[in-house]
Each structure stands twice: as C-alpha cells, then as structure tokens.
Amino acid sequence: MNTRLAPYLRVILPLILQVVFFQYVSVGGGWWYLGFHLLGILLLPLQRSGLSILLFSAVFGAAIDFTCHGGGLFMSSAVLMGLFIPIVNRLLAPREGYEVSDQPTISLMGSRWFLVRTFLLLFIHNTWMFSIEAGRWDLLLLAWGKATASTLLTTVIFALTLLLTQRKTRSR
C-alpha cells in the first residue's frame, strides 16, 4: 500500500465500513454497540492538534448520525471522546514523550498502551452515548451496563482488527 495514503485510509476506512455494514450489526439485544468509525478517530496521528481531533470527531459523528438517523447522538458522543483523546494520550505518554514517527497502533505503541487507551476513550464515548440515549433516570444503570459491555467487546475487536491487518514492527 502506498505509505502516503495509508494514514488517511486507516482513518476513513472504518467510517465507510461502519456506514455500509456495521451499523446493521445488532448483537446481544443492544448490549453490544460496535461503533467501528471510532477506530478511525482512535487512529488519528498522535501529533494531531486537539482542535483538529475535535473537528474530525464531530464530522465522523455527524456522518454516522446522518446515515443512522441518530439525530446528533453520535456526534455529541464522538466530540466528547475527541476532547479526551489528547488528555488520555498525555496520561499514557512514555517517560521520554512520543516520537514524531509514533502512531497510535499496537505494532508501534504495544498492546498494553493500545488496550488501555482504547478502553478509556471508548468507555467515555459509550457511557455518554447510552446515557443520553436512555432518556430516563431509571434506565441509567442499564445504560452504563451496556456501555461497559460494549466497551470491553469493542476494545477486543479493535485490537484483533489491528493485529490482523497491521505489519509487525518495533513495539515500545
């Protein structure tokens, strides 16, 4: 694959897959929401500014809202996750900081870094999304249960996807 195009494809492809296929996936009676477009946001380069991550997240979320009739729900959740991406990146930064060539993938940053980062960010996204979607206080506990289950399963799926699709390179 052309190395210049790869970073863009890595971000856009999950969004296309979500719109075309994964929006129809309904597993476990709503207990597992697979937001595959979120993988695209999570794979935005580490050097991206907080502002551009926010804007990317908003566009991705709005695209899903537009195609899945979410009415702003996915945009709101993606924007919240986008706000936390630089914060979580700073929290998990190696002692010597990130290198210019670092990318947020398992092959470059290691599986532990990827799993913790993905879990934290997806948890923020899913908790917000399921809570708003619940619409009633008495459904909040159920919503948080769904958010936790979805986060765990989606983190595993994202890790497997990267393990299966990315070349093995050095791990930090």
Partner: peptide, 28 residues
Amino acid sequence: HIALVFFALQALALGWFVSSHGYPRGKW
C-alpha cells in the same frame, strides 16, 4: 479555544438531538 470549540460542537449536536425529540425528522 479547544474548550470553546468543544462547547460549540456539543451545543450543535445536543441541539440537533433535542430538536428532533430523540427521533429523526426534518429535511435532512
């Protein structure tokens, strides 16, 4: 600026959500 953009985008998204009363309607 990041906080301001965040609140602006959230207001847009939540305004969209609230105005549609949780279900989709409108020209789009």
